[in-house]
Each structure stands twice: as C-alpha cells, then as structure tokens.
C-alpha cells in the first residue's frame, strides 16, 4: 500500500503540484494521467526516493518498488545481451548456493516476460517491444510488490503496446503485483487499468477510467 498525504513539490519558486492526497492499494492497476509537465514523473521519483518532496508524507508498507524509467540510452551498438542487461540489477555473490538461486530467478523472470528464446541477442538489436520487456524484466528482479511504468508504451506500435500491457496485466493478476502506469494513451488506460488519477490544476483527482479522454492530456491554458 502507498498512502500519499498533502504532498507538495516546488522547484525553486515554481510549484509543480500541491496537496496531493491518494492511496494505492495492494494489487491495484492504476493509471496516472495528465498533460506533459504536469508532474507525473516527479511524483514517481518522490515515491521511489529519487527526489525529495517539499512537504507532505508518503507511507509505504516497506515494500520494494520496481521502476521502469521513461528513457533509456540503448543504441544499436549496445553490446550486452538481453540476459546480461537484466543481470546488471543482480547483487554480486560468491556463494554458490546464492548464485544458483540467482540463475533460477533470472530464468523465471525471462520466462514470465517471454524473453527466454531471445535472451542471448544483443539488446541494441531487438525490437522496441522486446526492449521494453527487458526493462520490465530488469525491474522485476528485486521481487517488487509495486511496479511503476513510466510511459513504457510510448514509442510502440498498437499491437506491441497491447502485448506488453497483456503481460503487465498477467503479472498483476497472477502475482498480485501493484501497477502504476504513467501514460498518454487513453485507449490503454480504458482497456487495462482499474482506476485512474488525473493531474489537473497542480493537484490530483481520482477519475473513472472510462471517462479518461484525449483532452485530459493536453496542456492547460
């Protein structure tokens, strides 16, 4: 569970948002929607501890949170294979038993994300959807109870978007993984998420997912 109370953030004199109050329950599949620059990524960074809030509190039940960031610098020359890329997030160990456990964990995650067959391919050479799956797999390595996806579907074809979201939905159903999905895609919001939080006028309000519409993603005048 993540409980946010009276949360505000300013960068210098500039107010990003104020008095955010909401709760995300275990097993939730929630979308965070709003125009560019409304503070979605900033909020997420505060939740995972990469940024400090200006005031207010965030209570979590001590759970691990996996975060899949919006941008990654992976060009076609990127050398690591999919499996080696995912392994970057593993803790080093010399204990043979722990190494075996790590290998099992990697295999399980590869299987869950459908990457087993292409695990040896260089990450730089696979498709956008497969890259996103690899990013997702890397974040799943710490066995998070909550997964935050920051615009993970942004640059993908409709079909690939749906495949990725089917996978996330499956993780949500089967393993009760809480999912926070930051997105600009109202079709995906309607199709996959159970609840939505809308950034509006420097604050946040709950909204019925079926009422999410295109104009909510446009800049405020």
């Amino acid at each position: 569970m993540i409980k946010v109370e009276n949360l505000s953030k300013r960068f210098g004199n500039q107010l990003v948002f104020e008095n955010l109050n909401f709760q995300i329950n275990d097993g939730d599949f929630i979308s965070l929607v709003g125009p560019n620059g409304s503070g979605k990524t900033t909020l997420v960074k505060i939740i995972i501890g990469l940024e400090k809030s200006s005031s207010g509190t965030i209570k979590t039940s001590g759970q691990t949170i996996g975060y899949v960031p919006q941008f990654r610098n992976i060009d076609s020359d990127y050398p690591l294979s999919i499996e080696q890329f995912i392994r970057l997030n593993l803790k080093i160990t010399l204990n043979p038993e722990k190494r075996r456990q790590n290998n099992d964990l990697i295999n399980t995650i590869l299987q869950r994300t459908g990457l087993t067959e292409i695990k040896d391919r260089p990450l730089g050479l696979v498709s956008g959807g497969e890259k996103q799956k690899a990013y997702l797999a890397q974040a799943l390595l710490n066995d998070p109870k909550t997964l935050i996806l920051d615009e993970s579907t942004a640059s993908l074809d409709v079909e690939v978007k749906n495949q990725l979201m089917d996978l996330v939905q499956e993780l949500n159903h089967k393993y009760q993984l809480t999912v926070i999905f930051i997105t600009h895609d109202y079709d995906l919001t309607k199709k996959y998420t159970k609840r939505a939080l809308l950034f509006k006028n420097k604050t946040i309000e709950p909204i019925d997912v079926q009422k999410v519409s295109k104009d909510m993603f446009e800049m405020e005048g």
């Binding site: 501890g49 990469l50 975060y67 990654r72 890329f85 970057l88 997030n89």
Partner: peptide, 15 residues
C-alpha cells in the same frame, strides 16, 4: 559500476 556504466538510467532508478 557495471550497472551504472551499462545502464545509467536503470542504475539511478534502482537507487
């Protein structure tokens, strides 16, 4: 160092 060098953004996200 490997994590940060081969996936700087991922390393930041992992804290």
């Amino acid at each position: 160092l490997s994590f940060d060098s081969f996936d700087h953004i991922g390393a930041q996200a992992a804290g």
